[in-house]
Design a protein around this nucleic acid. Structure first.
Length: 388
DNA sequence: AAAGCGGGGGG
DNA sequence: CCCCCAGCTTT
């Protein structure tokens, strides 16, 4: 299917364009399979500009497969903090450890072995094999599906697995002899820079002359994709518990369970608000009983802020309440008995724990406020002293 | 085949 | 501001 001329023209013009427009990216400075691998995992669902600083820091911290294999998981999560999809980081470390043990520290170069690594699917396997080892395997990501669906006017729903398989077959046929790595990167580069999701830059496109989608005036309506369901909203009460006594200046955080959403990341305590949210009394009741289950009595003080966190499937609408541990004359002499996944931390100690972005925003807002409060007190103290 | 899994950027 | 982007794992 598709004419030989349309295919040969595409590959030749694309390669010529890529040689002139190739971006200088940190992971393109070598063909170290480990570097390629890490970059491809980071680039899943994530834009190049976002990935660059993370990649640089990650390589400084974990320069080799051995270094990453031996690192504590919490350091790896901390290096991934803010990138999202944290299972990518956990899977990468699992896979790197497997490469250490099973392949003596060398990234395998066969389809079967690479594909079997945790976190490596059809796209990433193709990317590693082609870019690091120049093997003629397709690497079909969203960019590639968009470019091919437009150039060849393919109207299949790209969310379907069968469409990806079709695209992989086509993409493989397009690879010029001995140039798999550059060709696959060229295809993605065109999608990123020219054949963009909205308002594609057809007039500067190296293959516009034979683009079937453009000829049909369909560049804006391709690729065909069925709409995702909107995330379901969840109202959540969040507790920012201020330490007292020996924990003065600190706040209470906890670690999430090892499985599921945001696995093993750190967070502020929060709980689902059932019924009408927004009532401070209901918030106090919900947070107090939630934390009482872990042995902490609290007084809810005031609403600090609202925060929103959108996942692909859930939207958290969070109301953040500043709380204090309940004064308890009877127990005040006893050490607290919080479960071990809780910690009292200062602003400085945030550096040691990996938080999803929404909790970083809340904590930074809170600590900025308390810092400004302290500054205000210091200044007023100072002015009183100067009066004296 | 469908659902779960975060966060950023562009128009 | 709303809308869009998207690969792998698990079910």
């Amino acid at each position: 299917m598709y004419s030989l001329e349309q295919k040969q023209y595409f590959s030749a013009e694309l390669m010529s364009w890529y040689k002139r427009h190739k971006r200088d990216l940190p992971w393109r400075r070598s063909r170290n399979p480990y570097h390629i691998w890490v970059s491809e995992i980071m680039l899943q669902q994530t834009r190049v500009d976002t990935v660059i600083p993370y990649f640089e820091r990650f390589m400084d911290k974990f320069p080799t497969i051995e270094a990453l294999a031996e690192a504590p998981e919490e350091e790896v999560l901390k290096a991934w903090e803010g990138l999202g999809y944290y299972s990518r980081a956990r899977n990468l470390q699992t896979a790197v450890r497997e490469v250490q043990e099973r392949y003596g520290g060398t990234v395998p170069d066969t389809k079967e072995d690479v594909f079997s690594l945790k976190g490596v699917g059809p796209y990433t396997a193709g990317a590693i094999l082609s870019i690091a080892y120049n093997k003629p395997e397709p690497a079909v990501d969203g960019n590639v599906m968009r470019v091919l669906s437009r150039y060849f006017l393919i109207e299949e729903d790209i969310m379907k697995g069968s469409t990806r398989v079709l695209m992989e077959k086509l993409a493989k046929e397009l690879i010029p002899e001995g140039e798999a790595g550059d060709f696959n990167q060229a295809l993605m580069e065109l999608g990123a820079l020219v054949c963009t999701p909205k308002s594609p830059h057809c007039l500067t496109c190296p293959v516009m002359a034979h683009c079937a989608g453009r000829a049909a005036g369909m560049e804006d309506s391709l690729p065909i994709k069925k709409k995702a369901k909107p995330p379901r909203p969840e109202s959540r009460y969040t507790a920012l518990v201020e330490g007292t006594g020996e924990h003065t200046g600190k706040v209470l955080i906890r670690q999430r369970p090892a499985e599921g959403l945001l696995a093993r990341m750190w967070e502020l305590p929060h709980t689902l608000a059932t019924g009408a949210a927004g009532d401070p009394a209901a918030a106090h009741e919900a947070l107090a009983s939630h934390l009482a289950a872990d042995g902490l009595g609290i007084d809810s003080l005031h609403l600090l802020m609202q925060a929103e966190h959108v996942f692909s499937h859930i939207r958290w609408d969070m109301q953040v309440y500043v709380c204090r541990p309940e004064p308890s004359p009877l127990l005040s002499e006893l050490p607290e008995l919080l479960p071990s996944h809780y910690r009292w931390i200062s602003r400085e100690e945030m550096e040691q724990y990996a938080f999803p972005n929404v909790f970083l925003r809340i904590l930074n807002t809170y600590f900025k406020g308390t810092f400004q409060l302290k500054e205000k007190e210091r200044r007023s103290l100072h002015s009183r002293q100067s009066v004296l």
